[in-house]
Every structure is written in structure tokens, then in C-alpha cells.
Design a protein around this nucleic acid. Structure first.
Length: 657
RNA sequence: GCUGAUGUAGCUCAGUCGGUAGAGCACUUCCUUGGUAAGGAAGAGGUCAUCGGUUCGAAUCCGAUCAUCAGCUCCA
């Protein structure tokens, strides 16, 4: 037809394995995927071109390094879930006309959409929406990207879509952006940067999980919206696996296990957020405290004790009272006979007390570093909606130490605090520890104490220490406390959930406020620097996370009951009693089960109680003067002499393995 | 604190239309003496979260309070 003599233009695309393939210019990611294989084309969600994710059906016109994004690619779930939020919005719009849409991003485990609707969404509506989403998926609607000027987009969302929230985003958040992109799927259109799935049909399985509320743009002065959470997956099978993981998380919930294993309790008669440690939970806490005390003794820490309340002036001086007055219990007010008034605060933190210990006598540069340590119980009036078992409580105990040192000692001291924290986490089996350097937000200087120079120095020191310890960290801007930057340790539990536990914080501000000094070699007064550090963070939170991490299967050294002696029948009760006694004398926490139950029942009960060692005793053991050891979740480990068993268990306990 | 949901025996949960409560497990007693995840029988156990209202009558309907759960906001 054409008299065009030019050869057909081709482009060279480099695949992730390094091979180069040529395609006609204008080919799409779908063409590329098809050329590699049918399965890949089915799984393809989007395309990465020179490291940038774009829509699968974008026409390629230049040589590039490309990569097909599937659900198992690092960017896959994010794109999948973001498109799913649009799919959900379309379903909601079809079912509940007039609903307006706010923000609908993908999140770590799925997506949500904030909806303003006259309809009050209920649990049963979620099932209807799920059904509609799957139906829309079956319609196999092509998702089409359209770019337009911001002004045109505003007009579009005003007149065609009638969606005021999108208009607000365009007029405000995006006001300096020229061109924006819209994604159309049938009558539904969303403002979105993309990329998105090529078609609604990629979504094969839907689970809408819950409804909650949110404020438009996170601002409590703005209107409330209904936030609907969900997760979608590219197959039914993957959804089933996801649901199984959720159930596993539920089974490990420390609140549930804490009650079942009789570790702690919460009672409205005591007050919400005020946990009570039951005997078995207290054993775990005791062991952990003894462990840390031992390690701290080796590292030159000095234990102190301070009262649970303090004069309010102390906290005004430290700056905590004005700064955190919302989250403290109200002051206790005391009048003496002359009518003189004094106010006391349940202590929300330990540092001011420790600072007073520091300044109780003259300190020489030779005395530093001074490391004061205390398991200090503090009380904070956390918002009621925040309370969560042991993990977020109003009364809790920090493994709090304050290290007073010279500036030239600071980095060394930060390093040794990091080392201790890593040692603690390693011993407790948290292998995946993330470290965040929590820096201040220079945009919001008013939030912090101290001068800009002091902050610069403190952040430099923190970084230097982190680098020297070779830790892999990321920076959290705006995560610092008001008096200084922090190194926060975030662990993942056995189910991959993240928890912030230990912390190391640098503080140049409190030494000023409390006028802390030491005499230098020059005979002059100098300011020490303070490090606040807590490897566990809070005993309550740490143990809550540990319960979930171990699913209640504690290592032998922490187990509230380490062994239970299970006689098979009454004729060996005397022997069983002597074994039980021997275990107790060896310092092993042992119980004896002399109920008239069969051995199967006794074992089952011990397994459910998650007791690490079951000592089974019958005629054979009695005759040979031995015992049989059965391990929790493992099974029969054979016969041992009583002393052999005790040695074995003691070794395991002292090794904290 | 905000939005929504929930609250029945120690635990997990039934309980219809408003007619004063039921199961399994756990517990107690008795029988059973059994070799590696549940032996049998009987018994006891509840101011249906609390307070108030509607009603001849409330676990059930309404309101308030408390607590818990999910999420938002916050976290020295």
C-alpha cells in the first residue's frame, strides 16, 4: 500500500537473563510476555522498563532493559492490590450509587478504599461487594490509561464523575503537576499515577476483611469516611494460604495465649491497660530480667531503684510534662495543713530520677561513663483505643538505663549499647532485626528541644556508631524523640509482623535542663552526654511479642514449667515422686501429675500446656532406675538415668539455648 | 480520643417471634491402673457486662456506662 521504502523499525529489548530480543516498534509488554511463554503472558501484571514500572499495554518505541512484573515480583502485589482497590470502588459504585471515593492505596497486606456514602456499610455488605468484584473480574474489562491536563481532569471529576475528593486532590496535593493520569474501567474512573493491571480479570480471589473509619486526609477536623479493607490474590489457592496465615496469627495472639497459659491477666476492676502478671508469666519476666541483669553486670552497669511517683516540677523541668501532658495520668494533688499545695505525677519515665542520682555528687571525667540501670515501672495514660494486651499498656516496666559519658566516649558507648541489644535479640531467637535511625524532621523544628547544632552532632554520632557496628539501617525522618535521635530495633516475629522493641537514644538536651556537669582534666566544668537505652524496651511488650514469636513454646530456660513427671500407673507413684523431688532439688521447675488418667491423656494435657519436657515413668523405668524423656512437639527421646537427665537439662538451661 | 462491632458457665459457642437458659471442653466425686496427644459415669457451675427505660413479662427491644475487638490518630 505504502511506498514507504524504509525497513520496518525494530527495537532491542534486554531481558532480565541478559538475552536481547528484537521486536517491532510499538510492541507491548504483553507481546513480549507472549513471545516468552503463554503462562508468563497469563501471569503478567505490568512491565518494568529501565527500572520504571509501567502498564503492560504501553507501546514500546525504544531499546530498553525490560522485566515482566508478575504477582511474585517485588512490585507485583503492590500493583495488583492498587488495581484491586479500584475494582472494589467500581463494585461499591455499582451497588451503592452516589458513593464518593477518597484515597484507595495498596498496603502491606492488601488494600483499602476510603468511601463517603450515605449507606452505612455492614459486614454482610462486604460479601455482596466481594461477589460483585468477582463478577466485574469475569467481565474482563480492559483498564485504560488516559493522560490529560490537570485542569481538564478537574473538570472531568467535577462534571462527569462528580467526585469532590478527587477534585480536592487535583486542586491541592497535585497543584504543581501539569499532566495527570486517569484510569478508566467501564463507567468507573480513578485519578491515579499507575501502573495498573491490563484487565480486571487478573483478580481471581477476593476477601474483604473489615470496615473501619478514617478521616479524610488523616485530619480529625475533616469528615469521617468509611474505610473498607481487603485483599485479593491471583488464585483461590493463594487466598486459602493467606487465610491460613491469618488463622495462625490468631492462634498465636499473645492475649489468647496469655490467658490459656495463665501468664497474665487484665481486669476492669484494676483498670484497663494495667496488666497483672500471673505466677507463670512472672517466671518468664523474672528469667528475662535476671538474664539482662547478668549481662549488664558484666558490662559495668550500676543498678538503682527510684520511686513510682515524682514531684511534678521534676517533669516540668525535663520538658516531659508539658510535652506529653495528654498521655499522662492526672497529677496527684496534696495539700498540707498550711494549705500549701504539692503535685505529684505517676512517673511516666525514669530519666529525671536518674539525672538526680547523677548530680547527687561531684563527678570527675575519670568517673565516666556512669551507667545507671533500673527496671523502672512507668505509667502513661495511653488513648483507650490504643490499648492492646501487653503490647500497649498503661502501666509497664522499662529495662531503662542511662549512660552518662564524655562526648569523646559517646560513640563507643552507643556501640556497646547496640552490641548488648543485638546480644539480647540473638539469645531470644529474633533473627531478623531491622534497625531504624530515627532522625528529627527539620521542617518541624519546633517539635524538638535543643539547637540545630546539637541535633546535627547527635545525628552524626548515631550514624557513626551504626556504621561502625556494621548494621544495616534505614533512616526514619521525623521519628526522633523530642530530645534526640534514636536507633530503634524493629523485629519481625515468626509470622513476619514488625514490632519496635529495643531502643538506643542520644540526648544532649536533658544534661542542659538538669545542669549535669563533670570536672574535666582541665579542672573546668563540662557537660556530659546521656544515652537512654532499653534492649527489651518494655518488659510487657517484649514478652507479648515473645509469646507470639514462640507461639507460647518457650525455650527451656524461660518455660514456666520446665518438666512434668508423668507416672503411668499408681504402682510407680513413689518412684515418680522421688524423680520429681530430684528435679526440684536441682532447681528445675517441675510438676508431678498423679491424676488417675491414662498416660495418653496426661501427655496430651502436657502438650497443650506447652511444657517442654515430659518425664514418663512406668514399670520399666522404675526397675532400671531410669526415666523416659518426651519432648514437647518432638516426641520420645529415649531413656536416661535421673542424674543424666538433670545434667542434660541444666546444661540446656544455663546455655539459654 | 474518634468510627464501627462485640459482651450468655472458667474456656469456645448455641439460644427462633419478647414467655426468667443449653452444648462441648475444663472442674468435683466415683469407677477404672491404663506405655507416648482425649477411658467411663455422675455432679456442681449463670443477677445473660453494669445501670436505667419500654412491656403483664426482657438474654432478646431502646438508652447510658464499662470493658474488649478492628481501624484511625498518638507513642517520652
Amino acid at each position: 500500500m505504502s511506498d514507504n521504502q524504509e525497513p520496518l523499525a525494530v527495537i532491542a529489548l534486554t531481558l532480565p537473563d541478559g538475552s536481547v530480543k528484537t521486536f517491532p516498534t510499538g510492541s507491548t509488554g504483553n507481546d513480549v510476555a507472549l513471545s516468552i511463554g503463554r503462562k508468563l503472558a497469563q501471569d503478567a501484571l505490568a512491565l518494568k522498563v529501565d527500572g520504571v514500572a509501567i502498564d503492560l499495554n504501553t507501546h514500546l518505541t525504544a531499546d530498553a532493559a525490560i522485566e515482566i512484573i508478575t504477582f511474585s515480583s517485588p512490585d507485583g502485589p503492590n500493583i495488583f492490590w492498587h488495581s484491586s482497590s479500584h475494582l472494589m470502588a467500581q463494585a461499591i459504585e455499582e451497588l451503592y450509587p452516589g458513593s464518593k471515593f477518597g484515597a484507595g492505596p495498596s498496603i502491606e497486606q492488601g488494600f483499602y478504599y476510603d468511601v463517603a456514602s450515605e449507606h452505612r456499610f455492614r459486614e454482610e455488605d462486604l460479601r455482596k461487594i466481594e461477589e460483585r468484584m468477582l463478577e466485574i473480574s469475569k467481565r474482563d474489562i480492559q483498564i485504560r490509561r488516559e493522560e490529560m491536563n490537570r485542569i481538564d481532569a478537574i473538570e472531568f471529576f467535577k462534571s462527569v464523575r462528580n467526585d469532590p475528593y478527587k477534585v480536592e486532590i487535583l486542586e491541592d496535593t497535585l497543584k504543581s503537576v501539569e499532566r495527570v493520569s486517569l484510569y478508566h474501567q467501564d463507567g468507573f474512573t480513578d485519578l491515579c499515577i499507575g501502573p495498573h493491571l491490563p484487565s480486571t480479570s487478573k483478580v481471581k480471589a477476593v476477601l474483604l476483611t473489615n470496615i473501619s473509619s478514617s478521616y479524610w486526609r488523616g485530619d480529625s477536623a475533616r469528615e469521617n469516611m468509611q474505610r473498607i479493607y481487603g485483599i485479593t490474590l491471583p488464585s483461590e489457592k493463594l487466598l486459602k494460604e493467606h487465610v491460613a496465615r491469618l488463622e495462625e496469627a490468631k492462634r498465636r495472639d499473645h492475649r489468647k495465649l496469655g490467658a490459656e497459659l495463665e501468664l497474665f491477666m487484665l481486669s476492669p476492676e484494676v483498670g484497663s491497660g494495667l496488666p497483672i502478671w500471673l505466677p507463670k508469666g512472672a517466671i518468664i519476666r523474672n528469667e528475662l530480667e535476671a538474664f539482662l541483669k547478668e549481662e549488664q553486670r558484666k558490662r559495668g552497669y550500676l543498678p538503682v531503684y527510684t520511686p513510682h511517683i515524682g514531684n511534678i516540677e521534676l517533669y516540668k523541668r525535663s520538658g516531659h510534662y508539658p510535652y506529653y501532658s495528654d498521655s499522662q495520668f492526672p497529677p496527684l494533688t496534696y495539700h498540707d495543713e498550711e494549705g500549701k499545695q504539692e503535685q505529684y505525677l505517676l512517673k511516666p519515665m525514669n530519666c529525671p530520677h536518674h539525672h538526680l542520682i547523677y548530680s547527687s555528687k561531684m563527678r570527675s571525667y575519670r568517673d565516666l561513663p556512669l551507667r545507671l540501670t533500673e527496671f523502672g515501672t512507668v505509667y502513661r495514660h495511653e488513648q483507650s483505643g490504643e490499648l492492646n494486651g501487653l503490647v500497649r499498656a498503661r502501666g509497664f516496666t522499662q529495662d531503662d538505663s542511662h549512660i552518662y559519658c564524655r562526648p569523646d566516649q559517646l560513640v563507643d558507648e552507643i556501640c556497646s549499647a547496640i552490641e548488648l541489644t543485638q546480644f539480647v535479640f540473638g539469645t531470644l531467637g529474633f533473627s531478623e532485626v531491622q534497625t531504624r535511625l530515627s532522625m528529627h524532621d527539620p521542617e518541624n523544628q519546633a517539635k524538638y528541644g535543643g539547637t540545630a547544632e546539637v541535633w546535627e552532632q547527635a545525628e552524626k554520632d548515631v550514624k557513626e556508631a551504626a556504621d561502625r557496628m556494621g548494621i544495616d539501617y534505614f533512616i526514619g525522618v521525623g521519628e526522633a524523640s523530642f530530645y534526640g535521635p534514636k536507633i530503634d530495633f524493629i523485629v519481625r516475629d515468626a509470622l513476619g509482623r514488625k514490632w519496635q522493641l529495643g531502643t538506643v537514644q542520644v540526648d544532649y538536651v536533658m544534661p542542659e535542663r538538669f545542669d549535669l556537669t563533670y570536672t574535666g582534666s582541665d579542672g573546668q566544668k563540662h557537660r556530659p552526654v546521656v544515652i537512654h537505652r532499653a534492649p527489651f524496651g518494655s518488659m510487657e511488650r517484649f514478652i507479648g511479642v515473645l509469646i507470639e514469636h514462640t507461639a507460647g513454646n518457650f525455650p527451656l530456660w524461660l518455660a514456666p514449667v520446665q518438666a512434668v513427671v508423668l507416672p503411668i500407673a499408681e504402682d510407680v507413684h513413689d518412684y515418680a515422686k522421688s524423680v520429681h523431688q530430684a528435679l526440684l532439688e536441682a532447681g528445675i521447675r517441675a510438676e508431678l501429675d498423679t491424676r488417675s488418667e491414662k498416660i495418653g491423656k496426661k501427655i496430651r494435657d502436657a502438650e497443650i500446656s506447652k511444657i517442654p519436657c515430659m518425664i514418663v515413668i512406668g514399670q520399666k523405668e522404675q526397675e532400671s532406675g531410669e526415666v523416659s524423656l518426651r519432648r514437647h512437639r518432638i516426641g520420645d527421646e529415649g531413656r536416661f538415668s535421673v542424674s543424666g537427665l538433670i545434667d542434660k537439662l541444666k546444661q540446656e538451661i544455663t546455655g539459654r539455648t
